[in-house]
Computed example of a mutant assay.
Amino acid sequence: MEKQTDSVETVKSIASDLKAVEPIVSVKNLIVTGKDGRLLVDHLSLQLKRGETLGLVGESGSGKTLTLKSLIGLLPKNLSESYEEKKINGNVAMIFQNPMSALDPLCPVFAQLIEVVMIRQNVSKKEAVCRANELIERLGLPKELSKKDRLPSELSGGQCQRILIAMALACNPDVLLCDEPTTALDVTVQKQTLDLILSLQKEMNFAILFVTHNLAVAAGICSHLAVMHHGKIVERAATKEILLTPKDEYTKMLLSAILRIPHR
């Protein structure tokens, strides 16, 4: 009987190990086409495992954001898509580029957070208030928001971005999609926000797909990079490999465009 129990536990352990290494995001030959028939995302394929951080880098218009919007089901209606496979094994949440446009300008931010908690965690309003309070405290937001709520316009850009992060965490994500989440922030707030996202990832073990045109920012947060150009992934590898030995000419151009602090 003891041997049989050991065998069952071994099988469970193997199944758990297999689940840990299988991709949590799997996309194969994703195509997004414009109304004029132009390929905006051209046969894109990628995989992402739990706990990994993959950076999609490239200039504006390269198809990065459209890839994220396809994954979360928010593609504009005038675009069409096709794919062999598009699968996310778990909950997905997204942090948008501009917090001021992502938040409802006429609704106080704490009220917006409570609504997300109620819907995504299926709890009562009383419980949602408690959980929303925990989130704002965790993210270093003013505690008085729960008593004296404010409109997005009454908060700083960094605080609004943290509200968006709180909303994303309220979804208990297995995959976090980040669409240039620090572009509108000043340099010090950028670093604080990125450090916060990485700290939360370490704690909650979610995967991150991080979109940015800034290769330096991607290098600081991502374990792997995929370089996009004209809708295609032209190169992908571990971050260190791409930084030290880039193979594609477009990747080399992006690296050469990084501003360096001059030595005097």
Score class of each variant (00 low, 15 high):
K3C: 04
T5D: 15
S7D: 15
S7T: 14
S7P: 07
V8M: 11
E9C: 09
I14Y: 05
A15S: 05
L18M: 14
K19T: 11
A20L: 14
E22A: 12
P23E: 00
P23D: 00
P23L: 00
S26Q: 10
S26H: 09
V27S: 04
K28A: 13
L30P: 02
I31W: 10
G34H: 08
D36E: 12
G37P: 01
G37C: 03
G37M: 03
R38Y: 05
L39N: 08
L40K: 06
D42P: 05
H43I: 04
H43E: 14
Q47V: 07
L48F: 03
G51C: 03
G55Q: 03
V57P: 03
V57G: 04
G61I: 05
K64A: 03
T65P: 06
L66P: 12
L68A: 13
S70Y: 01
L71M: 14
L75P: 06
L75A: 02
L75C: 02
P76K: 06
K77P: 10
N78A: 09
N78K: 08
L79R: 07
L79I: 07
S82M: 09
E84M: 09
E85I: 13
G90D: 02
M94E: 01
F96G: 14
L103A: 08
L103M: 13
L106H: 10
P108K: 03
V109L: 02
Q112P: 00
Q112H: 00
L113F: 04
I114Q: 10
I114K: 13
V116I: 12
I119L: 10
Q121E: 10
Q121A: 03
Q121Y: 05
N122C: 10
S124Y: 02
K125P: 08
E127C: 04
A128R: 05
V129R: 07
N133E: 13
E134H: 04
E134R: 06
E137D: 10
L145K: 07
L145C: 12
S146H: 04
K148L: 06
P152K: 02
S153C: 04
E154D: 07
L155T: 01
S156W: 08
Q161C: 12
R162Y: 03
R162I: 06
I163C: 12
I163P: 11
I165R: 00
L169P: 00
P173D: 11
C178P: 14
C178L: 15
A184D: 13
A184S: 15
L185R: 00
D186N: 04
T188K: 15
Q192G: 14
D195Y: 08
I197P: 00
L198F: 00
L200P: 07
A207W: 01
F210M: 15
T212M: 10
T212L: 11
N214W: 09
N214I: 05
A219P: 07
I221E: 03
S223L: 05
H224F: 06
A226Q: 09
M228Y: 03
H229A: 08
G231A: 08
G231N: 08
G231F: 06
G231S: 07
K232F: 05
E235M: 13
R236W: 02
A237E: 15
A237K: 13
T239G: 11
K240Q: 14
I242D: 00
I242V: 02
L243T: 04
L243A: 04
L244M: 13
L244R: 11
K247F: 06
D248A: 11
E249L: 14
T251C: 13
T251K: 11
K252I: 09
M253H: 15
L254S: 02
A257Q: 15
I258V: 15
